[in-house]
Amino acid sequence: MKQITLKQQVLQGNKIIADKNRQILREHSVFMINLMSSPGAGKTTLLESSLPYIKKHVRIGVIEGDVATTLDAERIAAFGVNVAQINTHGACHLDAQMISRALASLDLNNLDLLVIENVGNLVCPSEFDLGENLRVSLLSITEGADKVMKYPSVFAYSDAVILNKLDLLPYVNFDMDQFLSTFQKCNPSAPIFKVSASNGEGMESWIRWLLQRKEDSCL
């Protein structure tokens, strides 16, 4: 007798919807990234710091994922971009069905780039394909250099990693050599962008890379 676990069934069903999301985005020439991190790592601040520059080059929208409230969505909307809010009401991640509903609420004909700010969590989000073109994980140095070892999946399947809050490096016990060595073993092909989203340090390289990946997808 063959047994199929509930997890396998859930992920299989999610993959079907994720592929539909991908097709819809492809038809509208929209490039989508999935931004993942633990709570408080600085995803929203990173977007706030990135948006003024990205808006000069492409039409950008944001899907905000939170357990509750619209606080982050309100911060992003202040920059004059289209925002779709998803409240999971307890769920620790976004899934493809949630993204499908969010896509239906956005005018995809007036977007080039769409950023998903996933629910703060380093475990569950890594398992769910949302239909994105890129996965980007964000880690703040205040969380410690051992997060790659503790949560390898989210980093192993990321197309890039952003190391945030670099301005706090002199004040915390963060072993940069350990982090770089561990990440190199986990994901040797992904670039690492060292930034401080709060003061703008290193942001230019991250934004330039993102816009280049968007441009390359159109070729």
Rank of each mutant, 00 (worst) to 15 (best):
G40A: 06
K7W: 06
S100A: 14
S29D: 12
A78W: 14
K20R: 09
N87M: 03
L94G: 05
F79K: 04
A104F: 00
D107F: 11
K43S: 13
I76R: 04
I99C: 10
T5C: 07
K55D: 00
E48N: 13
V30D: 02
T88P: 04
R59E: 04
L103K: 09
V62Y: 01
L114K: 03
L111F: 03
N82M: 12
G42P: 00
S105H: 02
Q12K: 14
V115W: 03
I63Q: 00
L51P: 06
L47C: 06
D72C: 01
S37L: 14
L106A: 04
N110S: 10
I99Y: 04
L47A: 02
V115L: 15
R26P: 01
R26E: 13
V83G: 05
I16S: 03
N109S: 03
V10T: 14
D107Q: 09
E27R: 14
K15D: 08
V62H: 05
A77V: 06
G13F: 01
P52E: 10
S49E: 07
G80N: 09
L25I: 03
L6I: 15
G61Q: 11
G80C: 15
E48P: 00
D72M: 05
D66L: 10
A68V: 15
K20D: 15
D107G: 05
I33P: 03
N34H: 15
N109R: 08
R75Q: 01
P39K: 14
S50W: 10
K55A: 06
I17K: 14
R75S: 11
L103W: 03
T70Q: 11
N87S: 12
S105Y: 08
D72N: 03
T69I: 15
I60P: 00
L103F: 02
T44E: 04
L71G: 11
L35T: 02
S29Q: 10
E48C: 03
T44P: 00
N21Q: 01
K20A: 11
T45H: 14
A41F: 14
G61I: 06
H28W: 13
I17H: 10
I99T: 06
G40P: 07
A77D: 00
G61N: 04
K55R: 13
N34M: 06
V30L: 11
L47N: 00
T88W: 13
P39D: 11
E48F: 15
S37K: 12
H93F: 10
N34S: 05
Q8G: 03
I99R: 05
K15W: 09
G65Y: 07
S49C: 14
G40Y: 14
G65R: 11
G40H: 03
E48S: 11
L94W: 07
G90F: 04
E27C: 03
H93M: 11
H57K: 13
I99V: 15
